[in-house]
Design a protein around this nucleic acid. Structure first.
Lengths: 328, 328
DNA sequence: CAGTAAGATGTAACCGCTTTCATTTCGATG
DNA sequence: CATCGAAATGAAAGCGGTTACATCTTACTG
């Protein structure tokens, strides 16, 4: 028995002869190790928990599937749960995953506080935070350089000649939303433009919120020839609102989104947006676990990813635009 | 020990007094049962495997998350894997899930043959097939009435006065694709219309395929005022191709999709389509497992779900349409 | 109050593996 | 060929529960 265990795990030296004998016996008996028993004895469950707000969000699905594939290739099981961006549910989900003795946790949590993460999680098991930076735990975080993304979005419009650029933000209490806005402001400053409060609306990262925010902007009567939306869903809503006003995209208003979610390719015109390399980030998360928990990989870990602009049809040069931008 | 086990599992009678004592001891010791050890001893892993082609597909994500939520509420773990619609990979994924001693398997498989399922799976563990009917295993299948969906799509257009209706199909080797087409033909027949081969193109359920198929239809020069696409992705592609030809939707061509995938709401105009109640179906799958494997639910199981039309902006009455349908 | 059966609790084997430690085998050396 | 150390193998104790079975309590009964 001990020898069989050794050849299965390659844990210790076994002579070539007996290794062959064991393997062939395994074959003829069609033996499959009981992975639960392995887990119990080795105190390794070989499974990693992934917690996401939802599965169908624009971003989570590909993160999940990329991570799962990478883990499965290494023989690890992926157990997932959804936290629904609710603090209580996220805590419950974490407990649930821990209760299955996951070897590690990859989590994208919106509602949990930094304090909870720092204080409650630390001893429990190795974990990784996605798309968020918790101060003091930078080496356990994989995130996007949101500030740079915001900068790129606005810079692109500025280079196209736009000067009056509106901005529809996500909830500014969320760090990613405020970082994106920060980037926007930096771009304006870099091009010598003043930031105008009346061209900013804070919304909720949802489609309908984007639509409402755009209506509000249009009602304010402050002219603008382009708008940056802090995510693609709000951009979709904003596009509806622009059209409802009888304006057209991109002739009257250029629009840039953020995320490069699948939906952005389906909008009409196709949305110019900032790519969120979420698939790579999911893969990287899996590698982090493989490396740091299972000592199974030598992969270099990158913690901060760089967003890049994806030019499509929804933004054109200011000269190409009509002269009657909203509110003029 | 035995008594503790009994109060945890409620498996046998325990006096109220000792039950209380055990529970309070559990509380003060902050005791959490080791779920792996439970699994080994009870020969129940309390986890169910879900196999989907991909996570980000239009349909799988919500199926996954609904099923997971239902299972988690019952204290069961969800392990998932992706099969990528590849026969070998699907088999590997199944083996992988079985190797973790899943108590049941919920699988959406495209590439696996009926024979494999009937012969290889039967003894291994309880399983459920999603979105597909395997002859002889109807009670282990949860599926959509695709024929009816195809019928509804075409009937809607017929009632709007359309007579020449093109059809872009999925791969006819797949049963769901051919059932949808069958429904289309039945609707035509019910309204006394002949089926015209030249208005049918078989494609691949993908966006680009839809776009190519539409180009082909337009090149054929056979007139039509409306088109049914066997899924929303192809509809998205078709819409691009229609516009590339300088035609507009729905004025020149009405279009109806199938699936009611998230993307359908983002298209412009928003896509009239047939709803695929995949979230409910995922939930139902979880209930099936809870009931049949864990004896934990009394839920009535529905095996065949009914698609319904979701009217949106991409299809209008024939009278509202321009008179110059393509090819006229 | 002894007798009894149902109900509550305790005992210990077992689930299928890993791992430590002891034992055996083997090859090289003097 | 005896000796020795390293390498290979074997034995057995867990891992943390479940559960069949044995034993002990209880509450009734006659």
């Amino acid at each position: 028995m001990a020898t069989v265990s050794r050849v299965i795990n390659g844990s210790s030296r076994v002579s070539e002869k007996t290794r062959e004998k064991v393997l062939s016996a395994m074959r003829t008996l069609n033996y499959r190790p009981n992975s639960i028993a392995q887990s119990l004895a080795s105190n390794r469950s070989n499974s990693v928990g992934i917690l996401v707000p939802q599965v169908h969000g624009p971003v989570f699905a590909s993160m999940l599937s990329e991570a799962e594939e990478e883990l499965r290739n290494a023989g690890k099981f992926t157990i997932f749960a959804t936290g629904l961006s609710d603090e209580i549910k996220e805590q419950e989900a974490i407990r649930f995953l821990i209760s299955r003795n996951c070897d590690a946790l990859i989590m994208h949590v919106d509602a949990l506080t930094d304090e909870f993460i720092k204080e409650q999680m630390d001893d429990a098991l190795p974990f990784l935070i996605m798309n968020r930076v918790v101060p003091g735990l930078e080496d356990k975080c994989i995130s996007l350089d949101n500030e740079r993304g915001g900068f790129e979005a606005t810079r692109t419009l500025l280079e196209m000649g736009h000067r009056r650029i509106a901005y529809i933000s996500g909830p500014l209490a969320w760090v990613d939303a405020s970082a994106r806005l920060e980037g926007h402001r930096r771009a304006l400053a870099a091009y010598g433009q003043d930031f105008d409060d009346r061209l900013l609306v804070e919304s909720n990262f949802k489609e309908f919120g984007g639509s409402e925010a755009m209506s509000k902007l249009l009602r304010r009567g402050r002219s603008f020839s382009a708008v940056v939306c802090a995510n693609d869903e709000m951009a979709a809503g904003a596009m509806d609102a622009i059209r409802a006003r009888g304006l057209s995209i991109p002739e009257d208003v250029s629009i840039v989104g953020f995320d490069n979610a699948p939906l952005s390719r389906y909008l009409y015109p196709k949305l110019t947006t900032v790519n969120y390399p979420i698939a790579e980030m999911g893969r990287m998360a899996a590698r982090w676990v493989l490396r740091n928990v299972y000592k199974d990989s030598e992969a270099e870990i990158r913690h901060v990813f760089r967003p890049t602009l994806v030019p499509r049809g929804s933004a054109i040069t200011a000269e190409g635009s009509r002269d009657d931008a909203p509110g003029k």
